[in-house]
Nucleic acid binder design. Structure first.
Ligand SMILES: [Mn+2]
Ligand SMILES: [Mn+2]
Ligand SMILES: [Mn+2]
Ligand SMILES: [Mn+2]
Lengths: 153, 153
DNA sequence: CAGGATATGTAGCATAGGCTATATTCGACG
DNA sequence: CGTCGAATATAGCCTATGCTACATATCCTG
């Protein structure tokens, strides 16, 4: 290994000012990752409620592509966070907070897909990638997307 | 793995053909999420190696914004997956596979930031959001990004 | 070259999110 | 109105990612 001349050893002496910024970005990405499931479930449940009038655990599980027991656990987290309520054997319902979240998430999802298509991404890829990308699009970025799409109309 | 084909039932009315597609998209997003940490660590370690000649656990932890014990565990996973090697008390090194991954990840990261800036996202937001978005950009989408940037030069 | 500061290793704990397996309960219909 | 398949609930078990606390090892510096 080449020996660096840095007095404090190459490891951790000089505090580069961009270091905290990078750590902060990683932290925000972690945060977004942890909110991802809640957002997708809220959006999906809203969709099921709007389409079929009810959201059953089994349908949520099938649409998410997970085992029903997995959906049960995640729905439990949604309950703990005050986003849904559920009656035993009667399906899942969105609270007001849950509905608000679902609305925001759905709007963002659509805008992301639109943007991707606008820059030339094939629709299928756009739909697939948007499912992950959407959770990492901040308000500032979202506004820029809207502006870009507006300008190009 | 097991691909269930549930016949029609009370709650799951008609089998909409887009259902499996949606489950597939969610599944791919989950996969991308699970690869996220490996990609970020590989990129960061490559950066530390290029910049300072060595990648110490403490530096990785600080740049990632996590406790050092957390970095140790993740580096353990990188070892198990054959992406890095490490000598006790001597820092971390990339294998050939690790280097290849880091290169791909870095290129994609830069392209994503470029694309975001090109559509009008403020640089700071672009840098922040790209850290999460990059892990969900497929090859097809990446190619479209490159094409868009090329056309606008 | 001794000691203190820093880095590293390791153990234990928690939560999230997957899974399978095994009850129960519901509800459609013969 | 009883039965049986589908839906629901619950109980483990696993891995991945975080954390704190404490024990060692290394490395600077006086
Ligand atoms: Mn999503
Ligand atoms: Mn979505
Ligand atoms: Mn990243
Ligand atoms: Mn990156």
């Amino acid at each position: 290994m080449p020996d660096k001349r840095t007095p404090g050893s190459s490891s951790s002496h000089t505090i580069m000012p961009q270091e905290p910024a990078q750590a902060d970005r990683f932290g925000r990405a972690r945060q977004a990752r942890s909110a991802t499931l809640l957002e997708d479930y809220a959006e999906l449940i809203a969709d099921l409620l709007a389409t079929g009038g009810e959201a059953r655990t089994v349908d949520v599980a099938r649409r998410m592509g997970v085992a029903h027991a997995t959906a049960v656990k995640t729905i439990g987290r949604l309950k703990r966070e005050g986003l849904v309520t559920a009656l035993p054997y009667r399906g899942v319902f969105l609270t007001e907070a849950g509905h608000a979240l679902a609305d925001r998430v759905r709007a963002r999802h659509r805008l992301v897909v639109e943007l991707l298509v606008a820059v030339g991404v094939p629709v299928e890829d756009a739909e697939a990638d948007a499912e992950g990308i959407e959770h990492h699009v901040s308000d500032g970025t979202l506004a820029a997307f809207a502006g870009f799409l507006q300008a190009r109309k």
